[in-house]
Nucleic acid binder design. Structure first.
Lengths: 236, 236
DNA sequence: CGCAGGGATTCATCGGAGGAATCGGTGCGC
DNA sequence: GCGCACCGATTCCTCCGATGAATCCCTGCG
């Protein structure tokens, strides 16, 4: 076990042991290093690792603090590693996205707020306008697509689902998805699918919302490469 | 943007840019630090962070290598942050577990291997024996429970689902789950639920496998605290 | 041909020093 | 009295150099 691992484990114990909670401030580097029996360099490596994981937050001139430990914060590091994957492993990731977003859509049908429903309506109208003009503003449509899915996932009310979907279907993954999608009419079909999801949400019909969202994401999934190519699960 | 962030981003670019792939070796610390324009200390902090994330692997006396980058490796860091959460946020995490394992069970019904089916049978028989003796060997039953779910999740064939379930329903989470479950007959009911799932898998009935697994996990879920307590989403 | 030994390479850890950002108290001007 | 600029203390950020530990690989012996 390396010194850095001891630091990570030591801080973990301080949190799970109740000594440190969200928002609390850690001892200064010198003291904490001495307490854990490591040099300042090793301490900093461990603290930095926990910072990348979203557990700690260091502010120069101020101190080091425990973050809110929200799922959204803690899952953000996941997005980084997901983005490292190439197109070949996009399908299993997207299958997870489909399952989670389908569940979220079903949940959202019963608990979506009028404001969120109206916001989703606005996003869909904006997307429709981008499709109506020539030439089509593809980045704008992708942006609207992302926003619509984000709203639905968030209205599911499960912060873990929201965070996971954000990590798996974040900006990089989304751009890669649309980049491989040059099929004619794909955007128009996406728009129709979204409209169907929206109607189900507006009607409070959970089953319809699930089916519509699942069908939409299955459509998307079929455009992805079926099997990891001959190459191993490599970054592209 | 800190020096460490530059290191993380620089290595990310080297991977996504194709310069580095799984198993490849990075330049030695001195060279890489010079190339990225940072000191060795800052370089080490960045490399260490990527090591914790499961992207890099450093071996003393040998060198630093890119890992396989498979989902299982990259999700392992997720388990750490999930375990940081207290009992209060167990429910949303378990809901995700339920959705994913339900999907995996459905997939497994069509593709489970005879060997895996037999292995699951053996685990269930072992669990039955632990329940038959007095006093009941609770740790052994928990172990069998975990193993059964692991087999089913793995046989779903989606490595991302397997890795996520492992991270969310790993050892710490599982122990915490059973610790709060002192209800009489809970283990016997779990055993019956598992048997039902096994029969569905053996029959190749995907729908039955989904329903049985979902019902089982819903049962478990109802034993969890309903709403985050008055306290914020704190570590316990 | 197999194996033990030793040097070279590489990462691991430590200690110290100066710089940059932030916070909080102080004193001035209004 | 009140607001604001200033300044010193605190804290993290970055760098540099040196030593120890683990591994690899070449060499030489049996």
């Amino acid at each position: 076990m390396s010194r850095t691992d001891e630091v990570v484990d030591g801080v973990r114990r301080m949190i799970t042991g109740g000594e440190l909670g969200p928002g609390d401030r850690l001892p200064v580097e010198k003291d904490l290093a001495e307490r854990l029996g490591v040099s300042r360099g090793s301490l900093r490596e461990g603290v930095r690792a926990l910072t990348v994981l979203g557990v700690l937050d260091t502010r120069q001139g101020d101190g080091t603090y425990v973050t809110s430990l929200d799922p959204a914060r803690l899952m953000s590091s996941l997005q980084f590693v997901v983005d490292l994957h190439g197109d070949t492993s996009a399908r299993p990731f997207h299958a997870v996205r489909r399952v989670l977003e389908t569940e979220a859509a079903g949940l959202a049908a019963h608990r979506i707020t009028p404001e969120a429903l109206e916001q989703a309506r606005t996003v869909l109208d904006q997307a429709a306008r981008t499709l109506a003009q020539q030439p089509v503003d593809h980045p704008a449509f992708i942006e609207a697509d992302t926003e619509f899915h984000r709203i639905v996932a968030d209205q599911g009310g499960n912060p873990v689902i929201t965070a996971l979907v954000e990590a798996i279907a974040g900006r990089t993954a989304r751009e890669r998805l649309w980049r491989g999608l040059h099929e004619e009419g794909a955007e128009a079909r996406t728009q129709r699918d979204h409209e169907a999801v929206w109607r189900a949400l507006a009607a409070g019909d959970a089953e319809a919302a699930r089916v519509r969202m699942a069908a939409h994401l299955l459509d998307v999934e079929e455009t992805l490469p079926l099997v990891p190519a001959d190459a191993p699960d490599a970054a592209e």
